[in-house]
Structures are given as C-alpha cells and as structure tokens.
C-alpha cells in the first residue's frame, strides 16, 4: 500500500524537526544563537565549556538533516502528481532542496569541528562557529525559491478538488517571502537583521515552524483522502 509509505515519509519530517530542535536547543544550547557580536574569547570558552553537549547535539542535527529528505520526497511526489508528466516545478523543487537542506548537515559538522579540539586557538574556534551559524541561517535563499516553487505548483493545480488545498499554496508563497530577511545576516552584527535578530532569525524561525506543521497536516490530509490514487 503506497499511502503507507507516503505517511511514513511525512512523519519523518516531524521526527527530523524534533531531532533538530532537541539537538540545537537543550543539547548544543545554541538556541537562540550565540550573539554575532560576542567576543572571540567568550565564544571559544562557550565551546570548551559545553563540549559534550555540542558534540551530541551535532549528531542529532546531522541525523535530522538526512531525515528531512524522505519528507521532502513526499512533497515532491505530491507536486509531481499535481504537475503530471511535464513537471519542471517538481524537478526544480528536488534540486533546490537537495542543497538547501544539506546545509543543516554541514552546520552540525562545523559545530563538531568547533567543539572537537578545545586546545585550538580562540580565533579558530570562533571562525568555525561563524560558519556553522551562517549555514543555519543563510539557506533562506534556497528556501525562498523552494517555497515559491511549491506555491506556484499548488496554485497551478487545475483539478476541481486540488491535490493540496489552494490556501496551502498561498501559505507557501507567504513563507518564502518571509524567510528572505535571513539572507542579509552577513551584513550585520547587531540589530534586528543580525543572525540572532528579531527579523532575520526569530521571524523566519517561527514562520518555518508554522510552514512545517501546516505542510505535514495538509500532506496527511491529501494522503488520507486518497489524492494520489487513480487518474
């Protein structure tokens, strides 16, 4: 029964989201992110003082990165169903998420590298830490494209009863636009658009969480309705 596999893939998204959150928040203690204007010595001390938590948290973050893919594949299957044989949006979606979500894996990898050798100089640890945080927030760019593609595909559904509800399409467009402030974090060290700022971090984080949960519910609804059957 194919709908069983689809359900498992969808739930994988929920599992991945949970792992990511547990990894980055109570374990690595990087949520909210370290302030970009924090001193180099302080950052290094933070990694040295919380080494085990960061290393274990990073494992969860990297695992989450891999587990997002079955979930994204389930979205791709629904988009493919919407588009039919000529499916540029589906292929664009697959390609853009393939590198957009890999950054989560690399973020975990750089957290590991930063915490791995406490004897390294403060500057080295700080540089690795910076890369890890950029890898977390910068993917707002591919995420924007991913959401716009998803939105356009859903709104292009010509069926009387669309595979995914049309408002979910509009929600994807909304999510895409609002993740965008994340792409300017390289310009600022303080203020609302720095990587721990209200508008470049908290807003995209909340919007992403909403998107994620709405997608899971909408996908399970479509699977339950048997939207993938027939034709």
């Amino acid at each position: 029964m194919k709908s069983g596999t689809m359900k498992v893939c969808t739930y994988m998204g929920a599992l991945a989201g949970t792992l990511l959150f547990v990894g980055i928040w109570p374990l690595a203690n990087m949520f909210p992110p370290l302030a970009p204007d924090m001193g180099t010595a302080e950052v290094a001390a933070y990694y040295r003082g919380n080494q085990t938590g960061i290393l274990v948290g990073a494992i969860l973050i990297m695992t989450a990165s891999a587990l997002f893919f079955p979930f994204l594949a389930a979205i791709a299957v629904l988009l493919k169903k919407i588009e039919g044989p000529v499916s540029p949006m589906t292929y664009a979606f697959i390609m853009v998420v393939a590198y957009g979500f890999v950054t989560v894996f690399f973020a975990g990898l750089f957290f590991t590298a930063a915490a791995y050798r406490p004897s390294f100089s403060d500057e080295t640890i700080h540089s690795l830490s910076d890369i890890a945080f950029f890898l977390f927030v910068m993917p707002a760019v591919p995420a924007f494209v991913q959401n716009v593609i998803t939105g356009i595909a859903i709104l292009g559904d010509k069926r009387a009863e669309p595979i995914l509800p049309r408002w979910v399409g509009y929600m994807n467009l909304w999510t895409g636009v609002l993740l965008l402030p994340g792409c300017v974090v390289g310009l600022f060290k303080v203020g609302p658009f720095a990587w721990n700022g209200a508008l470049a971090f908290w807003l995209p984080a909340v919007v992403f969480a909403i998107w994620f949960n709405v997608m899971i519910v909408a996908m399970l609804g479509a699977i339950k309705r048997g939207a993938l059957a027939g034709e």
């Binding site: 709104l155 509800p165 049309r166 408002w167 399409g169 509009y170 929600m171 467009l173 909304w174 636009v177 609002l178 209200a198 508008l199 807003l203 919007v207």
Partner: peptide, 16 residues
Amino acid sequence: EGVWVFIFGDLIVFAA
C-alpha cells in the same frame, strides 16, 4: 479565500 492567507500573514509580519 486563499489570497487572504497571504494578505493576513503579511500584515502580521509587517506589524512585527
């Protein structure tokens, strides 16, 4: 109806 999901979502964010 769906357009309004976008509109109200955007309004909330600009309010923020």
